[in-house]
Nucleic acid binder design. Sequence first.
DNA 1: GCCGTTTTCGGCCCGACTGTTTTCAGTCG
Length: 568
Amino acid sequence: MNKKVMIQTLEKIALYMELLGENHFKVGAFRKAANVLEVDPRSLTEMDDILTLKGIGKGTGAVIQDLMDKGESDLLNELQETVPAGMIPLLEIPGLGGKRIAKLHEALGIDSIEALKEACEKNEVSALPGFGKKTEEKLLHEIGQLAERKTSFPLWQMVKFVAEVEPILDEIEEISKYSVAGSFRRTKEQSSDMDFIIVTDTPSVVREKMLKLLPAIETIAAGDAKLSVTLELEEIIDADFRFVTDAQFASALHHFTGSKEHNVKMRQLAKSRGEKISEYGVEQEDGTMLTFESEEDFFAHFNLPFIQPNLRQDGRELDRIDELDGLVALSDIRGDFHMHTTASDGGYSIREMADACRTRGYSHMVITDHSHYLKVANGLTPERLLDQLKEIREINEEYPDIEIFSGTEMDILPDGTLDFDDEVLDQLDFVIASIHSSFNQPQEQIMERLHSAMKNPHVDLIAHPTGRLIGKRDGYNPDVPQLIEWAAKYGKILELNASPHRLDLDKEYLEMAQQAGVKISINTDAHATEQLELMSIGVEYAQKAWLKKENVVNTWSLDRFKQEIVDK
DNA sequence: GCCGTTTTCGGCCCGACTGTTTTCAGTCG
């Protein structure tokens, strides 16, 4: 039995139950069971205690047992017969939840978006108790918007969106302080909206000014505690703004940074101490409200160290605070080992890249231009590569404070051969191998290509191991656990590509790699000097995977890098 | 549906806003 199928089955059951208007704690129980399986790093065959895990009980356990025995779930089958599949997309309509969908289905037989649209147009919906004219109009409006609205935005795009909103907030003098919050603040790969916490004494003034200044095409909610709007930026995206006092700021920031699971855990912790956490502070048993100068103080109140936003994930972080100290940090990074110059498709020279790396305080770096197979990127022929090697050796003489190593980002060709011969590779300090072509090959063939690269003793690192571009393409679908196994066997480094377009390997796999003893290199893959700054995103993402400093080769000293990697 | 050192039933995180209501249910985050 495939663990993913099991997780999806539990989630589907939750979804169908939601559509039936079931008690949301019941729905939540199935979601929780799915989550318990998901956060458990073991495979199904390794989980002999699955039915006794906390969060899995009689009902969810029966589903799991069904799947183990028969490969399918009776409960899910029944639900699928009861609930028309067309109802599932109804949940995507803002303002519609399980309760209302169930009512619409029961009263009017609505089983699809199309049916809902018709019913609204015939004014049948507004005739139902609990629904009114405004709701009907809103539903029609939302249905119209559905097709053109995206529901999630990759990190790289969120960076741009946030950068567009912040200057507008800067302009409003009644705002004394603000911060972005939400999943973006947690360095999530994708976010569905923007969240900001705003400190002001005059929320209504700020709200009105914001409505004038922001490119808002719709106001979803506008009160003294929050403003919720739909913005027209490069894409249509919702934004939530919460208005709080200075004293409430830290609590509000923590609350609206989430994650939801993290907040639930924190609230449970508070409750066990007789306290109550809200976005305004921590309420004591006697009703007094404690507020905090900073999030650090907030955590300290619960005898916890500061848990940075990117670590606030599934709630398990509260059990892993003893690991916080050993995590890789930006200040530990001593070099970047994957970058391009004008020799291939980069925008700057070797010297310019070296200067930029020196400014960042690195002790070493590797130039890794593309290889000749990649014509579109002006990949280097063996001759050009060896010329570049000489040039790098010369330039190195000029820089006493940084060591520039010469490397390549060599293509693994569609037939599994490598773009350079061993004699060429032998002369380089550092060899990256990666796939840039024939993504559509069957997994077996992709794996053969990767295997052939990993078996080569000259290859040091596999770059962006899945080839994903977040929000654009999934990559070439390798069998990553197998890849990790090979990396451990052949002693190869796997890359965490720091580009917010890639963040590849994915954090679940990074964690798996670390457990398997595989070393990780965080690289920016910079094609311009300013892209070297993406290292901070890479490190933040690595922290999400709980990567320890020791396991990230960029933290190693120049001597160790030379000894264990270059001269090996 | 799940859970339990305040325990086998009763609560499950909690508050803002909206729309449909005359005091609150539903949705959302």
